[in-house]
């Protein structure tokens, strides 16, 4: 049975920790996605981003996404999903998705699925801080049922 790790963290996210978690001789493939703070948005210079999160529900939904990966691509996959909470500078890591599998097709597909579902379902919000000292919460996708 593959392992699952999910978290919303206020400490810096670590790709090395993800790769160590996924280290297993049965895995011939590890696919990672790392989300970072970009220095512009819609041509406006960005200096940093603050992330707010509803930790309890966010963690449950991350776990649900990981379990979906097991059902869809096989429960032998190892899955690491972490999202940050708090302030990040440009280049800071906001999300780490990492999936390990025997062969590459499953890792690539599951990794893509995970980041798309995180953006679609996980209750996290970003407030961009601009070079002109203004800040703005980014409009997103409604979760209203």
């Amino acid at each position: 049975m593959g392992r699952i790790h999910v978290a919303v963290r206020e400490e810096p996210l670590s790709c090395d920790a993800a790769l160590a978690f996924l280290d297993d001789p049965s895995h011939g493939a590890v696919c990672t996605f790392v989300g970072r703070v970009r220095n512009t948005n819609l041509s406006r210079p960005v200096e940093g981003v603050g992330y707010d999160a509803f930790d309890a529900l966010a963690t449950r939904i991350l776990a649900a996404i990981a379990e979906e990966i097991h059902r869809r691509w096989g429960d032998e996959l190892d899955v690491w999903l972490e999202h940050v909470k708090g302030e990040l500078p440009v280049g800071g890591v906001s999300v780490v998705v990492a999936v390990a599998s025997g062969h590459r097709a499953e890792s690539f597909a599951a990794c893509r699925h995970a980041i798309e579902e995180i953006k679609r379902r996980v209750p996290v919000w970003k407030e961009e801080h601009y070079a002109d000292a203004e800040s703005a919460w980014i409009a997103g996708r409604s979760l209203r049922l």
Binding site: G35, Y51, A53, F54, A56, L57, R60, H83, S94, V95, I115, I118, K119, R121, V122, P123, V124, W125, K126, W137, I138, A139, G140, R141, S142, L143, L145
Partner: peptide, 27 residues
Amino acid sequence: DERQLLRDDTPLSDGAAIAVLPPISGG
């Protein structure tokens, strides 16, 4: 709540803790 999204017809109980979630923008 801490477990799931809730529909507007959900009855409330005394002492309940409810989260209000604007449109999300994580990732």
